[in-house]
Computed example of a mutant assay.
Amino acid sequence: MLSVFNAAELFSLILTLATLITGIVFALDKFVWQPKRKEQPQQSRSGWVDQARSLFPVLFAILIIRSFIIEPFQIPSGSMQPTLLPGDFIGVEKFAYGLRDPIFHKTLIPTGKPQRGDITVFIDPSNPKIDLIKRIVGLPGDTVIYQNKTLYIKPACNGQKVCPVAQEVPKRYVGLTNFTEQGVRLDEYNEQLGTVNHHILRDPALPEQLYRYYQQPGSPMGEWVVPKGHYFAMGDNRDNSLDSRYWGFMPEQNLVGKATFIWISFTFNHNPNSMWPHWLPDGVRFHRIGRIH
């Protein structure tokens, strides 16, 4: 049973059970055992009951904050560079797309939908045991085209007299960066995705890998029509991101929340000859702390 949960869901399950158990002990002690002790003063409260009572409000507060308000998330890879870097710790707004139960992610109260350009955390459709972070590119009903490393979007036709046509997403070349893949410096572009202005990276040495793309039945390679209740997500590091181009569409029920700010950013020493443990941070990037742009 536990194998169906990813690490974050397993933590939520354990936290929920711990809160429930300590809450039951808290209630029993307050309304059943405590009145009995007043009738029998010689009886004292057990040590484990004291511990459960003191733990319950702490666990309850953590459960509410983590499940419905904000959840921490660590950037594990470079797929969202240059926007997010490995070592960034971000706050994920849990109520942006609806209040959901902390274990099965069923929507309890709808509060909004992902917008084009949002950076979202979601359960990987191809591997439910892990969470991913990508940018929303295509909304339900949109046609997304990615050819010659160029992004085109045809917005959904929602009853308009004249339906939208596919248009290239505007971008402007910024220059070579210090980001590298296999020793090759990456190109940086400024992209205008709907109302969101952000930066992307492209690898000039890597040809487009059309043969690896997910081919939607009835659509040509490199073109996708986003189904109802699904989204098309891509990484900002376009040639180094395993995203919807490769595994398909992200179901709405997989949403975890919206990435909104960086609360701390660490650097790690990956030099194999260093005596410093690679899993311990060796520096803090204070300039990165703040809202995600």
Rank of each mutant, 00 (worst) to 15 (best):
Q147H: 10
L151F: 09
P114K: 11
G283C: 00
R116C: 07
H293Y: 02
A8N: 13
F261C: 13
R37V: 03
F5E: 03
A8R: 14
V165C: 00
R238V: 10
T83F: 07
F60C: 15
G98Y: 04
F104V: 13
A96D: 07
M1F: 10
I292S: 09
A52G: 11
Q167G: 08
Y146R: 01
H105G: 08
Q40D: 10
G159V: 06
N240L: 08
E168Q: 14
F5C: 12
P281F: 09
P140D: 10
H293F: 06
N148L: 07
V121H: 04
E181D: 13
F268H: 13
N271S: 11
Y189P: 06
H278S: 14
Y152Q: 11
P110V: 08
D243N: 12
E208A: 04
L210G: 15
R172A: 11
V32I: 13
F286E: 03
K38F: 08
H293D: 06
S219D: 01
Q81W: 09
I289S: 10
D131M: 13
E9H: 09
H287V: 04
L28T: 01
H105N: 15
A259M: 06
L15Y: 03
G194R: 08
W279G: 00
T177I: 02
I90Q: 12
N269G: 11
E188K: 14
A233S: 10
F68P: 01
F249W: 04
S46Y: 03
R238M: 11
N237V: 08
K134F: 06
L139E: 09
L201P: 12
I75C: 08
H278Q: 13
T19Y: 04
Q216V: 06
W276K: 02
R135T: 02
I90Y: 00
Y214C: 07
L280C: 05
V144P: 14
G117M: 01
H198G: 08
Q42N: 05
A27H: 05
M275G: 10
P207A: 00
L10D: 01
N148P: 01
A96V: 09
F122W: 03
L15A: 06
K38N: 12
Q215V: 15
Y97F: 05
Y173W: 11
S219L: 08
E208Q: 14
L59R: 12
I24H: 00
E168P: 06
E93W: 02
K171C: 02
L10M: 05
W263M: 13
T83Y: 02
L15P: 08
K106Y: 13
Q40C: 02
L2G: 15
V225N: 12
Y211I: 03
I21F: 03
L63H: 13
A7T: 11
I123L: 12
S265L: 00
V284N: 01
R135N: 03
Q182M: 10
D203T: 07
R288I: 00
Q74F: 11
S54W: 09
R116T: 03
R285P: 00
C157N: 05
N240E: 09
Y152I: 00
M1S: 14
A259S: 10
V169H: 09
F26Y: 08
E208I: 07
Q182F: 10
N240W: 05
W48L: 14
Q81P: 04
P220W: 00
S44R: 15
G248F: 05
I145L: 05
V162Q: 07
G248P: 04
P102V: 11
P82W: 00
S241C: 13
K149C: 02
